[in-house]
Write a protein that binds this DNA or RNA. Sequence first.
DNA 1: GCCCATTTGTGCGTATGTATG
DNA 2: GCATACATACGCACAAATGGG
Lengths: 266, 266
Amino acid sequence: MDQDQASIGADLQRRLDHYVRPGIPKYMAMRDAIAHAVADGSWVPGLRLPTEVEWAATLPLSIGTIQRALRMLVDEGIIVRQQGSGTFVAGQPDESMHAPLHCRFIDDSGTGYLPVYPKIVDRHDVKEPGPWTDHLRCPRTLCIERVLAIGDEFSVFSRFYADPQRLSAFQSLPLKKLANENFKELIMRDTAQAIGRMDQYLSARRFEAPICKAIGVRSGTCGQRLDIRAYVGKGSPVYYQELFIPPNERVLHLARDGRDRGLAEG
Amino acid sequence: MDQDQASIGADLQRRLDHYVRPGIPKYMAMRDAIAHAVADGSWVPGLRLPTEVEWAATLPLSIGTIQRALRMLVDEGIIVRQQGSGTFVAGQPDESMHAPLHCRFIDDSGTGYLPVYPKIVDRHDVKEPGPWTDHLRCPRTLCIERVLAIGDEFSVFSRFYADPQRLSAFQSLPLKKLANENFKELIMRDTAQAIGRMDQYLSARRFEAPICKAIGVRSGTCGQRLDIRAYVGKGSPVYYQELFIPPNERVLHLARDGRDRGLAEG
DNA sequence: GCCCATTTGTGCGTATGTATG
DNA sequence: GCATACATACGCACAAATGGG
């Protein structure tokens, strides 16, 4: 075991201590420890991890338990394993990881998306109940309003609802910083899980006057409204979002989940 | 082991012989055997399966291998396991299983979908290439054109493309029978896998005259066009579909995948 | 409430097969 | 050919939940 492998092993051992809890299976603790190490950027894509036997010698886990944790991570797309070669942190070779989840309007080439320039309009607590209440089921709800400029063609209005206690970054980051962040990546860092499911509700609606004004369309414009319920893992709600999409000539790629690899594999 | 359990075990043993092949892992063969038994209706929802030890005594498989196969089936939602109780074929207690994948327009109550009345307009082979070519990659492509009446409110036009060699039911069934079938269920029976991924592409377009005529809107109508690439399992393409949705007042629930449980759990 | 057989869930250790370099 | 490393398979022991007596 060379020095790098040893340091990775030591790093994981420290992390494991935070995740082994009575009631939590060992394979799950190891899965969480590795997932967080990758999600927070400590372990970069392409990094080679120690072998099964190395880890079995270092950690208080058997080979079978380690294999089960690693198999889960493979299923989630977090690591890649190659027989005879080794185990590696999965990489996003292109920039599709940084692509937005929603508002993916296909560009003229047909192989990429129009750039999205977000601007935060407001961030506030919401008191009154709404469709997000049933979804999130949290004592407090944070709402972030944004205007998303699509290329230089048109703008989409967005309301993003989340539990500030669970996704603390959305509450704590200054607005200037938050504007430049990819929401999907923030969620991954806070939860170490990818968006695993989304229910989307589409309808044609007349937009309220303030929204029309914010996105620069004439008052009374009728466009698409997309309501989104997003989950991580097998069904744990993370956010609720409302999108107001004005009439346009583009094709919108509706994402299946947060692990989409962009258009290349489609 | 009572008589029923014994007969289930014997049934699986027969099926296993069809699936154990050199190169196919045993756990995968067992997974496929059970998945098909459930998909073709031989094993009905709620049926209790033999215990791990019973199967280990009957089949040439170890407990660990059996557990791995059953765990996969749990992840896929095909079976349910309860510690101390047993293993059961997963059930669709409501009719949501029979709900369509697409064209799920929410009804006035907000808890269900408007009924969909499909009518087959045409079935033919397509020679010329199109967006479905890259997706399906099959020598022949079958196209089924339908008019889907949504409640008694409006109609949606649909073109469904698939590989007739893979989904033989769509080729072989007489049109009268095909019209009454749920396409999603036909696919599950032919592949023993649920729709596991969908890429959807939404745009606003002016419909061609024949389509306008078929769904009873005035020529030149502009509405939503939804192109769908569907996959089973982790990324095996199964069909390509084009939907032409005229302007309407309803909310369309865009499905995440074929295992959606309807609105109740959303 | 308690005990107990049943059944699944977790964890360990080992052996062997197969792809990689 | 050979060592390495992941993949599959087996078997065992014990924990935890369930359901009935």
